[in-house]
Design a protein around this nucleic acid. Structure first.
Lengths: 111, 111
DNA sequence: GTAGTTGCTACGGAAAGTGTAGCACACGTC
DNA sequence: GACGTGTGCTACACTTTCCGTAGCAACTAC
């Protein structure tokens, strides 16, 4: 049983169906951001993905189901799980986080 | 007892201390993204924040503690919880999600 | 047939989140 | 003094989510 996290349907704890809330809810679930991140370069097989992030198959499958329902990820029989065009658009917005996280780490290290 | 999510210390399920992993781990916790989002315009009081997102005080407090430890959020006695300069930088990277989420919603609605 | 890979599920125990109540402290007001 | 109000935060029992391990069914290769 997969709980829907699509815009139009109220997001967890928001009651409104505003897309941004649905998106924050979706991305705020454990491993979701990480899965999108690990698919940034090449398609990954189910087990490969599972090993990369180190989560249980149960939850990897649940997150993948949500991401597929949200049309951010799709399963290609030949290559494995990969980002859809929509998913790649989202990834493009998330990529700056990589560089910023380095800056953030330095700021924290500097005390 | 607050679990640390700082870069340098290994993120949940990552083993490496890479900043991006720490960041994805931090933001991937329930309500974290949402809290940052709700602080985008003005400082919020503890209860105000709690009502806005509709989560239990326990978890709001836990997330705020993590965000404060990560120096993204701070508590100002006069005005309430607000983003730090570092937090505002992060928010700037997240803001494009708002517009994109609308596009995403339309794409899904279009079938 | 049997060994490997695929995506995925079952299940018991551990961890995280929920909902309600309430504490301790400060402030203002009578 | 005793009250009410707002502050951040905690306690506790209940529920949901997640983890770790095992394993299934289908397909491919040999």
């Amino acid at each position: 049983m997969v709980k829907s996290v699509l815009p139009g349907k109220p997001a967890r704890g928001s009651r409104t169906g505003r897309p941004i809330m649905a998106l924050l809810d979706l991305l705020g679930r454990r491993w979701t951001l990480r899965i999108v991140w690990e698919l940034r370069e090449e398609p990954r097989r189910f087990r490969e993905l599972q090993d990369l992030i180190g989560a249980s198959p149960t939850i990897v499958n649940a997150r993948l189901a949500e991401l597929r329902e949200a049309r951010l990820v799709e399963l290609d029989a030949e290559s494995g799980y990969r980002l859809t065009p929509l998913g790649r658009e989202l990834l493009r917005l998330l990529l700056p986080l990589h560089h910023w996280s380095e800056k953030w780490a330095k700021a924290l290290a500097a005390g």
